[in-house]
């Protein structure tokens, strides 16, 4: 099966795009990425240096790199929320997921929109220290 692979909006090239310390977004996360993140509480040294978004076979696929900038482990609870062109949520919403990010580790989160009407997304997350 030949895969069609369309670039949606050119990977959000944000490495080194300048750290932004906005309220409610992880410190050290570029502004373009931070706009897609809904952080609950403190980021606790977790940053999202890069997100890649593609439209593959008519569905949106997103990958987000999550980096722990400290020596100690962090527990992250997250889910992606898919939105249609009017900003409404598509479907019932994903289940929450738990992931451990070891000290100075980068974990990649991936999600696929379950309907072709999804054109945007938000990454909801909160970070617990261990």
């Amino acid at each position: 099966m030949k895969l069609r692979h369309f670039l949606l909006c050119g990977a959000l090239a944000m490495i080194g795009a300048g750290a932004m310390a906005q309220s409610g977004t992880p410190t050290g996360t570029p502004a373009a990425v931070a706009a897609k993140v809904q952080l609950r509480g403190e980021a606790n040294d977790i940053v999202i240096p890069e997100m890649r978004i593609v439209r593959r076979n008519d569905v949106m696929v997103v990958q987000a790199d999550m980096k722990n900038t400290t020596d100690s482990n962090r527990t992250v609870f997250y889910r992606f929320r898919w939105l249609d062109s009017s900003g409404s949520q598509v479907g019932d919403g994903e289940s929450w997921k738990q992931i451990t990010v070891l000290g100075h580790q980068i974990q990649t989160l991936k999600s696929v929109a379950l309907h072709s009407s999804a054109v945007d997304f938000r990454l909801e997350m909160n970070v617990e220290t261990q």
Binding site: L3, R4, N57, V59, S95, W96, V112, L114
Partner: peptide, 21 residues
């Protein structure tokens, strides 16, 4: 449990849709 069920379903459906089969 329920989270396992949901994570499995989401992963499988996403993978199926992504491949374009």
């Amino acid at each position: 449990g329920s989270s396992d069920l949901q994570m499995i379903a989401e992963k499988m459906v996403g993978s199926l849709l992504e491949t374009g089969i």
